[in-house]
Design a protein around this nucleic acid. Structure first.
Lengths: 213, 213, 213, 213
DNA sequence: AATGAATGAGCTTTCATTCAT
DNA sequence: TATGAATGAAAGCTCATTCAT
C-alpha cells in the first residue's frame, strides 16, 4: 500500500477504508467465533455498520473470506520480502531473521493465527483457499532453500540437504503457530524461538553459536 | 478393547457398529467438504442411511463432531501408547518410533488430517474441542520430554534442553501434517521423515548415525 | 365395564388392560406436558413399555387421543347416569347431587381437567373432538333441563326459565373447572360448592334452605 | 395509545404494524387449526408474508405465542378498565356492564375464544401462560369482589358473600365462553346474558328488576 | 404380542442475499 | 453509498409410523 494511495479522491479512499474496516471485522469475528460461526451480520455488527454493507462491498460471503485471506497473505508477504531484501550481511542472518519474523508478536498473533488455521481447516474442501496458501508457501520455500544452500556450501556441512532443513524449519514454524493457538496459556514466544535456534545451532553449528538467539 | 467385547449381543453390537459407521462417514464428509460444509444429511447419505439416523444416535450435530474428534484422539492415543510401551531397547529408538508413527500412512492420512485441522481451525471458538486436543497433547509432550531427557543425559549433550527438542519435534510433526494437507501433490512421506531425522542426527549425533532413518 | 368383562380369556383381557394402561399414561402425559408436548414416545415411556406399542394398540396418534377423550367421557357419563338414576327423593336433591358430582375430587381433578381443556382448546380445529363433547353435553343439559322444569313447577317460581338455570349451572361448573385448573393454589372445593349453592338458594329459595350445601 | 403515537416515523410505525399484523395472523391460525396445528409457516402465509418473517420479528415460536396471549390479555384489560372506570351511576350498573362486556360480540368471539382456550389447554404444562392468565384474573376478581361488597351492603343482602357471587359470576362467563366455543350453532348471546341476569336478579333482587337485561 | 432401530416428512430456525428507501 | 426489513433456501432436529426380529 504505497503512500500515494492516500491521495485518492474521498469516495474511492473511503471505499478502500471500508474494505479494510470490514476485513478487520472479519478477522476479529473468525477469531472469536470460528469460520463456521461467523455470519455476515456478525461482521457488519463488529464493524458497527448495517446488515447489507458486506454484500455491498464484497458481493458474496465467499469473496469476503477470499479477500480476507488474500489480505493476510499479502500482509505477511510484505513482511517476508522486507526481511529477505534487508541489506543483511549473511544468509545465516537472513534465515534467522525469517524465523524471528514468524515468531514476532504481530505475526504470531492468536487472532490472525485463528484465521489462518480456520482457512487451513477448510482448505481441503475449498481449492481456492488452498491455492492462495500454496502459492505463497512455494515462494517462501524457494527463498529458504536458497539461503540454506548458501549456508551449507559456505559451511561445508554434510549429512543434511537444504531441502531437509527448509522442510524442517517451515514445518516447525507452522507447528509452533498451532501450539500458540491451542495452548495460549503456556505458550512462550522466547521458548519457541529457543527451540528453533537450538535446531539451527545443531545443523549449522559454525553459523549459529550464541547461547541465546 | 479386549477381545471379549466382540461377544456383545447382536443388538448392542449393532449399536456400536452403527456409531462407528456414522463416525466414519463424518470423517469422510469433513475431509471432503470441511467442517462448515458438512451437514447431517451429508453424513447420513455418506453412511447410506436415512436423514434422522444421526440425531437418533448422536442427538445433536455438536455431539457428533465432539464424539468424532474424541474417536480420532482415542485412536491416536492407542497407537501412541503402544509405541511408547513397546519393549524397545533404548529411548532413542522409542523416540524415533514416535516420529515414525506420526508419519505413518494410517496416521498421516489426508482424510484424517483434514478433520484434525478442521477442528483446530475452530478450536479458538470452541473451547470443548481445544480441551480434547490440549489434554492429549500434554500427555504426549510429557512422554517425549522424558525420552529426550534420558537421551540428553545418556549422551551428555550440552546446548539443548529436553524441552527445546520436544517443542521442536512436536512442532515439526504438526507442521509436516499441515504440509501434507496443503500440498498433497508434492508431499513425500520419506522426505518428511528425512527432515525429522536430519534434526535428530544434528542434535543427538551419537544416537542417530545411520544415513537413512 | 360390567364385572363379566373380567372373565375374558387372558389374551383379550390383557389387550383390554394394555389399552387402559396406555390411556392412563396418555392422561398423565397430557396433564404434565399438554397436548402439544405429548409424544407417542412419552406415552410409551410413561407406561413403561416400548416405542412401537402405542401404534400397535391404537394405530395412530389421532385415534389414541380420540379414544382417550372417549374414555374420559364414558367415565363421566357412567357417574352422571348413576347420580341421575339414584333413587333420590326429589328433583332438587338430584340436581344438587349432579352439582356435587362435578366438584367431587375424582371428577374435579387437575389431571383430568387438564386433558379436557386440552381437548377443548383444540376443539374448534378438530371437529371429531367437538362431536364427542357436544354429544354428551346435550344429554346432560336435557337431564338438567328436566330437573329444573320440575323444580320450577313444584315451587311455582316465576322470573326464571329452566333453560336459564340449566345454562347458568352448567356454565358455572365449567368455569369452576377452569378455575381449578388455573389457580391450583387458591382453589377450594368447598368454596366452589358454596358458590353454586348460593345460586341455587337464590333462584330456588323454597328448595334450598340449609346454610351449608 | 395517545394520538401522538401515530406520528411515529414510518420505520418504527411499520415495525409496530407488522407486529400486530403477525399477531393477528397468529390468532386466525390458532383459531382455525389450534395451537398444535399452527406452524410458523402458516402464520407467515396467513399474513401474506415470507417464511422467515415471524422469526425476524418474534425470534421464536414460543415468544410469538406468548406475545399473542399478552396482546389478547392487554386488549381485554383495556376494555375491562374502561368499563370499570366508566362514570356509571351505581355499582350494580357497573357490575352488569362487566357482564355485558364478557358477552359482547367483540369479546365473546369464537376466533379469540379459541385462542384463549388453546392457551388454557396448555396452561398446566406451560407455567408462563398460566402466569399471564392468573395475573389478570386476580385483578378482575378483586374489582368484582369490591362491587359485590358494595351491592350487598347497600341492599342488606344476607345468605350470600361477595366472594361467592364473584366466583359464581366469573365462573359463569368462563363457562359461557366455553359453550360459545363448543356449540357455535346453538349458542345465543341473548340467552347467555339472560342466564347471567337471572342469577343477578335472584341474588340481588332489589338491584336488578327489569324483565330483560 | 412386543420391541426398538430405522425412516422420512415436516417443523423451527438461521442466514446469505436482495431491494425499496 | 448506506440502511435494515424482507426473502426463501437450507439446515438441524423431532416424531409418528413402520418393520425386522
Amino acid at each position: 500500500m504505497p503512500s500515494t494511495a492516500k491521495k485518492k479522491d474521498s469516495r474511492t479512499a473511503s471505499r478502500e477504508r471500508r474494505r479494510e474496516q470490514l476485513i478487520d471485522a472479519t478477522i476479529k469475528c473468525i477469531s472469536k467465533r470460528g469460520l463456521g460461526g461467523t455470519t455476515m451480520a456478525d461482521v457488519a455488527r463488529e464493524a458497527g455498520l448495517s446488515q447489507g454493507i458486506v454484500n455491498l462491498h464484497f458481493q458474496t460471503k465467499e469473496n469476503l473470506l477470499y479477500q480476507t485471506l488474500q489480505y493476510l497473505a499479502d500482509e505477511y508477504d510484505e513482511l517476508f520480502r522486507r526481511e529477505l531484501d534487508a541489506p543483511s550481511l549473511e544468509p545465516a542472518q537472513i534465515l534467522l531473521g525469517l524465523m524471528r519474523l514468524d515468531l514476532r508478536p504481530s505475526v504470531c498473533d492468536r487472532k490472525k493465527l485463528a484465521v489462518w488455521f480456520a482457512y487451513w481447516g477448510e482448505a481441503k474442501a475449498m481449492p481456492t483457499y488452498r491455492k492462495i496458501c500454496a502459492q505463497y508457501d512455494n515462494g517462501y520455500d524457494e527463498a529458504m532453500l536458497d539461503l540454506c544452500q548458501q549456508i551449507i556450501e559456505d559451511g561445508g556441512y554434510a549429512g543434511v540437504t537444504a531441502a531437509q532443513v527448509t522442510d524442517a524449519l517451515s514445518s516447525m514454524t507452522d507447528g509452533l503457530w498451532l501450539s500458540c493457538l491451542l495452548h495460549p496459556k503456556s505458550w512462550d514466544r522466547h521458548a519457541a524461538l529457543a527451540s528453533v535456534y537450538s535446531y539451527l545451532k545443531a545443523v549449522f553449528p559454525q553459523h549459529y553459536q550464541s547461547t541465546t538467539p
